[in-house]
Each structure stands twice: as C-alpha cells, then as structure tokens.
Design a protein around this nucleic acid. Sequence first.
RNA 1: GGGCGCUUAGCUCAGUUGGUUUAGAGCACCUCGUUUACACCGAGGGGGUCGGGGGUUCGAAUCCCUCAGCGCCCACCA
Length: 875
Amino acid sequence: MQIPPKYNHIDTEKKWYSFWMKNKLFKSVPNEKEPFTIVIPPPNVTGLLHMGHMLNNTIQDILVRRARMMGKNACWVPGTDHASIATEAKVVENLKKRGINKSDITRDEFLEHAWDWTEKYGGGILEQLKKLGCSCDWDRTKFTLDDDMYESVIQAFEALHEKGLVYRGYRMINWDPEAKTTVSDEEVNHIEEDSSLYYLKYFIENSEVELQIATTRPETIFGDTALCVNPKDERYKDIIGKQAIVPICGRKIPIIADSYVDLEFGTGCLKVTPAHDINDYNLGIKHNLETIDIFDENAILNNNGLHYEGKDRFQVRKEIEIELDSKNLLVKKENYIHNVGRSERTNAVVEPRLSKQWFLKMDDITKPAIKNVLENENIKFFPGKFKSTYKYWLENIKDWNISRQLSWGHQIPVFYYGNNENYIVAKNKKEALTKINNKSKVQYKEDDLSQDDDVLDTWFSSWLWPISVFDGIRNPNNDEINYYYPTQDLVTGPDIIFFWVARMIISGYEFRDEKPFSNVYFTGIVRDKLRRKMSKQLGNSPDAIKLIEEYGADSVRVGLMLSSAAGNDLLFDESLCQQGKNFTNKIWNALRLVNGWEVDEEKSQPVVNKLGIDWYSNKFNNSLELINKNFENYRISDVLMSSYRLVWDDFCSWLLEILKPNFGEKIDKKSKTELIILFEKNLKILHPFMPFLTEEIYHNLPNTNNSSPLTISNWPEIEDYDQKSVNEFEITKEVISQIRNYRKEKNISFKTSLDLYYLPDKNSPGNIEIIKKIASINKLEESSKENFEMVNSFIIKNYEFFIPLEGGFDKDAEIMKLKKELDYNEGFLKSVENKLKNENFVKNAPAAIVNIEKQKILDTRSKIKSIQKSISELS
RNA sequence: GGGCGCUUAGCUCAGUUGGUUUAGAGCACCUCGUUUACACCGAGGGGGUCGGGGGUUCGAAUCCCUCAGCGCCCACCA
C-alpha cells in the first residue's frame, strides 16, 4: 500500500472523529463491566476554548481513553455551565448596546434575551473539544439550566431547607456594585493597592479637645455612629463616654471603648461605621450602635450623604478631601498600601453591605468532607499538597451565601405571602399555594404570592454536578446513578478547590452519603514563557483552534503534556507543539519505512533480527511496567516521556536499524510479523496521547487486517521479561557508540568495514551480530592483543575491545585517552576505598551495601589494571 | 499577619521512606554528516561545588536548624 510521504492531520482527524462517533465508540450505558467515570468540569456555556481547557481536557481524555482500553466501561460526561454572573453580565452589556436597560424590562423578557444569547453562542466550546479529540459520551451532554438539572437544584434547596440548613439572614455581605449582586467570600480577591490614609479632626462636645482619626475611607463619615478607643489607652481615658461631633455632618456620636482597637495603629482612635465595615458592624452589635446606610445598590451616596447625595463613592472621596481640608478638618494624608477587595467577575471594589440573603449552614455538613480526604484518604488528591489548603478552608468555613441578585440562574424556590415576611419553600407557585392554604386559615390566591427575585449562586448547581448528571437528586435509586456514582477521577484547576471541589465532596456525602470521586488531579495554570498568566488583556494566549489546525490535535496534546506534572504550572510555548509535531512525523516515517520492506517468504530469521526483537520485547515490557506505575500515580507527563523515548530511541533508532534489510535484500517473514506486533503495541500505549495518528497508522500497518478500531483495542498486558537482556543491550549500545567515535576520530567511513576483537572473559559480550551490523564490523571475535601490531582499545564494563590498526596511528593521543580513563577510575576507586576504610561504615552500613562497594573495588581494580597494561604496551 | 510550597545543567523539570549514580531526562547549544523512513533527521559532544551557611550521620540533593530569594493560598487592623 502507498503511504503518503506527509501525514495529513486535517483529513485524518476529521475522518477518525466521525468514524468514532458513527460507531458510537464513546457511548456508555450501564453494563456488567467495571465503570470508569469522569464528569467534565463544565465550561461556561458561552465561553471559548482556551489553553487551560486544552490542558485540562487533554488529561481527562488520556485517562478516559486508557481506561477504555483497559476494558472498563468508560464514561466521560460532557456539559456546560450557565455561569450566572458572567453570562448575565455579557447579556446586560449586549442589551445596553442595543439601547435596552435591564431595569426597564421584565424578568421574563430578560430571560428570553439570555436564552437567545445562549443559543446563539452556547455550546461552541463542546465542538472545539471534539477537535481536540475528546472522547466524551456526547449523548449525555448536560447544561446546568436544563429542566431536569434545574429541578435537581430546586429539590436540593428544598431538602436542605427542610433539614434546617438553609436560612435567611440579615447580614453583612460582599456587594458588587457593578453587577449589583452579592458575591461570596470566595469570589472576592484581596489585592494590595496604593491608597491614602486620611487623618481627620473630630471635636468633642463642650470641649476644646480635638481627636484625630485615621481612615482610608473619609467618605463614610456620614455613616459614623461612634468613635472607639482602647480602654487601656492612657491618652483617651478621660473622653470615654463623651460625645464627639462628626465633621461636616455635625452629628453627635458616642465615644466608646473596646479592646478591638489597636493602640499602635494610626492614632489609636477608630471611627465606627457599622453599615459599611464588617468589624464596625460587629462593634455596633456589641455596643448597640445605630446603623446608618449611606449607599444605594450602585454604591452611590443616598440622602444620608447630605450634599453628596447622588455621587459615586470614589468621587465623594476626592471631593470630601477638599472640603475637609478647606475647613481645616483634614490633619494630614499619608500614602498607604492596603488590601482592597475586588469582585472576581467585574473587578469592582466590593462594598460590605448589610442585606437579607439566603445562607447555607456549613459547619455540620462539612464533617464527612474533612474526614474522607484527610483521615482515611477515601478521596486522594494529586498532588497531595493541596490537602492542606483544603483542610484549612474547611476547618475555618463560614456559612455560604447562596443567593444572588441576578435573573440568569435557578430562581430561589421561596414564595412570600401575607406581610412578605412569611414564606414557604416549594417547587412552584402552585405547590406553594397548596402548601400555604393547607396550613393557613386565610385562603390565598396565586396573585397573593410572590417568588423571591434572587437566583442561586452558580456553584449551588455545580456542586451537585456528579450526582445531577445521572439524575441522582430527583431519582436517588435509578440505575445510572447506582452504576456510575461515585465517579473515579476529577481533573480540574486548584483555583476552584473551594468553589467546586470541596463543595462537590460536601454535597456528595450530604445527598448520597458517598464520595463523588476517588481521585482529584489538579492541573497547573497555563502561563507564557515569562510565567505570566495567560489572559485576554495581555494577548499572550494563543488561539487554541489555530494551534490544532496548524500542528494537529495530537501534536498539541503531546506538547501540552510534555511538561505538565500535576499541580505544576505549565509554561506554554509553541515550540512544545513543534516538538509534538516532530514526534508525529517520526512515527509516521517509521510506518513508511516498515511499509517499504518487502518480505522474503522463504528466508529464515537471521540471528541479528531475533536478538533485536527479543531485546525490544523485553525493553517494551520493562517500559510498560514503568508506564503503568506512573499512570497509577497520575504522573502523566512521565508516562509520555518514557513512551516518547521508547518509541523514538529504542524502537526507531535501534530496533528498526537492526532489522533494516541491507541494500537489495528482503526481510524474513517471521521478523516482519513480529515487528508489526511490536509496532502495534507502541501505538496502543501512545493512543491516549495521540489518538488520531495512532488510529490512522494502526489501519495502515502492512500485513495486518485491523478492522476493529484501536480506540477500543486492549491495553497491552505486561509479559514476563528478561531484565538482564535489557541491561546487556546497554553495553551493546556503548560498544557501538565507541566504534562510531573511533570512525569519527579516524575519519573512517561507515562503508569501510572494520574488525573488532575482545579480550577473553568468562562471559562473552552478547549481541555480537547486532554490533556487527550496526557498526559495520566485519569480524567480531575473541582474541589477544599480541596477535596484532597496534590496536585501539576501549573498555566497557568488564570487557576490553580493540580494533587492529593498519596505518597512521597517533600513539600520544591514544595514551592520553587511556590516561584520562585511568584518572577517572583511580578517583572513583579512591572514593570507594575511603568508604571501606571507614570502620564505622563497615560496622553500620547494611551488608548488602558493603558488598556492593567491595564489588565495585574489585571491578575497578581490574579495569585499572588492564588500562595500565594497555598504556605500558603503547609506551 | 498566618499557612503551604519552591530554589538541582542555558530553559522546564525527575531524583520513589539517606547508601547499587565522585548527580539524570527532554528541549536548547556546539561539532560532524546529501548511509535510498524522517534535516520535523542521524551520529557525537560540552555543560551542574544540587540557593548560602551550620548541624545530625559511617554516609546528605535527600533529614534538622538558620539565612536569602521566589511563588501560591488564607486573613476584618481602621
């Protein structure tokens, strides 16, 4: 069969992906086989594939494809996330461009727009995953707002409410004034920023005394309801209990004492604004202070802000500085670096705000999540270092604010009636009405009920993902959930360990009393060569699809996996894809080479071929053992590296060269058949990494009839192998290497055959036929140096080889070479001797170690002896 | 402020409970090469006092202390 000289990745990828799909090779249904399940971390429905997704999904595909070949019922569940805040922000922005304000339209109208948007841009990312070769069971594709998924979320809320774990609380929360919603603590990033510390003057009622207060937020003085000092502070002893006057407002506020105040910081005197700072809020509760809210939902000052009403907080900060200064109420302003909380989604400065929100009690339901990861390792983390991060978070967990003031998401199933303080949790209005009227004397009508406007935090749906994709919330006993749950592996980034991983573990035990997965593989973050995070703003993120088109999916996959150990950041550079492409090219050409070898049916197998094939079989099994072990430990880049070296170095550079027929000759049938089997095995271990190329080659191998796809073939079994044969071949390689060096030194062409002899030894060096062929040696046998006039010798392990010299011989250079060798060995001998001279070593070290050292001495001594002999013969 | 982790060849990293290695890999680099699979290649080669210092030990890249540098996570000092 003709093999094209160049591998065409574009056509091949298209061909095989549609073949796999048509034959439903990724489809999984419960059966008698052992399940291997991964649920995808659902990407944002309107998102686009970026390098992080590529890495993450390549790893998942590798795990899934290998499991499938291991004979498991592999099931990779794909899907997308509605990503409430991110998607809503995009829709709002888009509507704005069209002149529509969200506040001017009804909730239903907005949702209609949002669905339009989702249908227009949604799901594209899943098509991109297909280009990467991902072997998901696409029939199972889920979206977090699908009807069944929606119902599961609502039902979970109901169940938790029933247990008394969900409650409504008036609390200080993180307010994102841009998105106009609360965000959870996890969605706030604290970033160090340059700002100013303002020293303000407060007067005390009926007194000449003025107090100085340091604050970073002078605009919040309108919300001040106390000043606070430390009771131990001698400076302020006399003023505790007096009234201070808020600058500009002229309001009187009490001066209180609390040990919370740091004597050292600022002036030791603190202004207390309970409505806009969590610490102040706590102080307010403790000291029964008034709470004055000065902002609206946009963080614009309300009428408590007097003449600043209607102005933005940062604008007011600038203006009030000027006013205070002009009134001589600003003492000084210092540069100050402090942490500012910013919303992860909008980057707006988060405003602490008091409001009524829904919370989930966390302290009890987290207990199994702690136990099963940290104590009994029912769930394993790779790398394990993330356990400590996980532990700290769980042990210091606060109640989870699960309500969001958004429309795009699962609307909170709470229905208010009567005075709006009464509410009932129900799946829908109808059910709510029935429930209410059953327990109330007053009979309500549907119009008397209003559903909570808020939606649930996106993570409140994703934390159910491994259960809800198998419908295990609504039907806890269905065949699917019973078969597929718990899943095996989860592959995700450490940045969502709290958002998602920990919460899935919590919900797993809460709703099914069982872990959601057994192993968590944390990928690193994809960065550029300069270690910068890849981002749109920096423009340092390559176009994922373009990379696939240019290099081929397999090459990109290999490139990504070449340097990404679990948990380690991946410094991505396009040259990695080039390396991947070089590898695909290498394998392709191996196919072309083997394909070109004609078979001689009559010829019996030459010894050299048998030696080569036996060695490679041993070597393959030796590597496979390592590969399997590394897979078990999720050391996937190590797996790739050993496969890469096995195929490139051992298979292509050695075995194929050994078997390559001489000019004009044919290969014997046995060798070719055995070679093809070995080639196939190589393809199998490479398949999880390079699914397209390997599938293509598998069907093009000569003398085979591979009608069944490689994708569903069996992972090779480890056969018994001879480690000695593997070790011995290393000596063979060295001998050949030395001869090559010799040729190079002497400028002897490969075409000129040489004779090679070796000194008698109790063992003869193996693989003589291989050395003869690969190094172009005419005669290779035992002999003694006396038989020749001059020789060039080299020593490998315990063998000394020599090549008789005919003319032109640089004696000095030869002596130099030997002396160098001698020096090394003498140094080595000395270090070993010193070790053995040390009585304590001999006394304390294990006998096995001592014996090894002793053997080293014997070996090295005999080596030194023969080198010395060679030198003296030359001199 | 608290916690975790890192520092091994030019780059990215291995080094599996301290001892079969006076330190390994891939890439990069240098030299040579038109041997009929592949120059997206082949053959060969150079390159590290394992961040500094101290300690434990017969023996340390590996364990302990300390210093320096870097990274990440958490956190309510105005």
